[in-house]
Amino acid sequence: MTDHPLDLDAVQAFVRITELGSFTRAAEVMQTTQAGISLKLKRLEDRLGCRLLERTPRHVELSARGAAFLGHARELLAVHDRTLAAFASARQRLTIGISDHVAGPELPALIARMNAQDAQLLIDIRIGSSGDLLQSYDRRELDTVIVRLHAGRTDGKLLTQERFGWFAAAGWQHRVGEPLPLATMAQPCGVRALAEQLLDTAGIPWTEVFVGGGVAAVAAAVVAGLGVAALAPRMLPLGCVDVGPKLGLPDLPRLPVLLHSRVREGRAREAVDALSAAFRSAARN
């Protein structure tokens, strides 16, 4: 058995497929093709003499032998990473800015995914408005930013297009004849500006009843029944409802989420790719 050692790339491919639940997403993280990932897995399965994953058109599931091997695979990769880290001169720092409208409740899981990619990488994450983060990125204060599309910018890599709606607490009622009460982010905020512009164009009177310093504060105001906010569904607790159709409010467009990064190679690039793939996965759910 020891005459033919395991291929670490193949072991890593197996772990990535298992974690992401997709050959395609694993290929994105490992910067290869789906065919390349499939070949790595087949090579590993041939070496071990058993099937590790059961594939269906919609799902990828561990086989019984695959479940038994997963812990050993992770331990093998961890030992490999610790060995390399022991000879590294210093921890590399990766500074990432994420828009408050983008970060969402999945952020802890995304950070965990990045740490799993490289536990020796020092990850520095800043949360702020898209405009402020892009300015910091242009000043080279940030290595990477994930932000909403910003007026006047045509650069960046599209990660996803996210749906928005006019959300209020369940049971909230708009008082007839009164301006629409809005809970908004503090300026500058592109989503706030877009929502107010759409209401003005539609001739719908509105008034700000709450201004929050972050999406969490705006979501709390919605849950408290203060009024309506233009937010992505994943930003709100269960029970909030989209009142746009009922109130005849203008449709909000799908808003793009873009990645701007000057990191091109090495451990930091692998971490950025892992974050991008994990975020696309979270945004689709």
Rank of each mutant, 00 (worst) to 15 (best):
residue 200 D to W: 12
residue 229 A to Y: 01
residue 84 L to A: 15
residue 189 C to P: 03
residue 139 R to C: 12
residue 1 M to H: 13
residue 213 G to Q: 10
residue 276 S to F: 02
residue 195 A to K: 02
residue 202 A to W: 05
residue 197 Q to I: 13
residue 110 L to C: 00
residue 182 L to I: 06
residue 127 I to W: 01
residue 5 P to N: 06
residue 68 A to P: 00
residue 101 H to S: 15
residue 60 V to F: 06
residue 230 A to N: 06
residue 227 G to N: 04
residue 257 V to P: 11
residue 219 A to F: 01
residue 64 A to L: 15
residue 218 V to S: 08
residue 75 E to F: 14
residue 249 L to H: 01
residue 178 E to N: 13
residue 197 Q to K: 11
residue 158 L to T: 15
residue 10 A to F: 05
residue 173 Q to H: 12
residue 275 L to V: 10
residue 242 D to G: 08
residue 10 A to N: 02
residue 205 P to I: 03
residue 45 E to M: 02
residue 65 R to S: 12
residue 176 V to I: 14
residue 19 E to I: 09
residue 33 T to Q: 04
residue 195 A to G: 05
residue 181 P to D: 08
residue 88 A to H: 14
residue 26 A to C: 07
residue 175 R to T: 13
residue 248 G to E: 03
residue 22 S to P: 01
residue 25 R to C: 07
residue 281 S to M: 12
residue 39 L to T: 06
residue 56 T to I: 02
residue 41 L to Q: 05
residue 172 W to V: 04
residue 92 Q to S: 05
residue 205 P to Q: 04
residue 58 R to K: 12
residue 21 G to E: 09
residue 160 T to G: 11
residue 24 T to I: 13
residue 11 V to Y: 13
residue 111 I to A: 07
residue 82 R to W: 12
residue 211 V to W: 04
residue 207 T to N: 10
residue 195 A to F: 00
residue 41 L to P: 03
residue 100 D to I: 07
residue 139 R to D: 13
residue 232 A to H: 11
residue 70 L to P: 07
residue 271 A to W: 08
residue 284 R to Y: 05
residue 86 A to W: 14
residue 108 P to C: 06
residue 140 R to T: 11
residue 18 T to R: 04
residue 98 I to C: 01
residue 122 L to M: 13
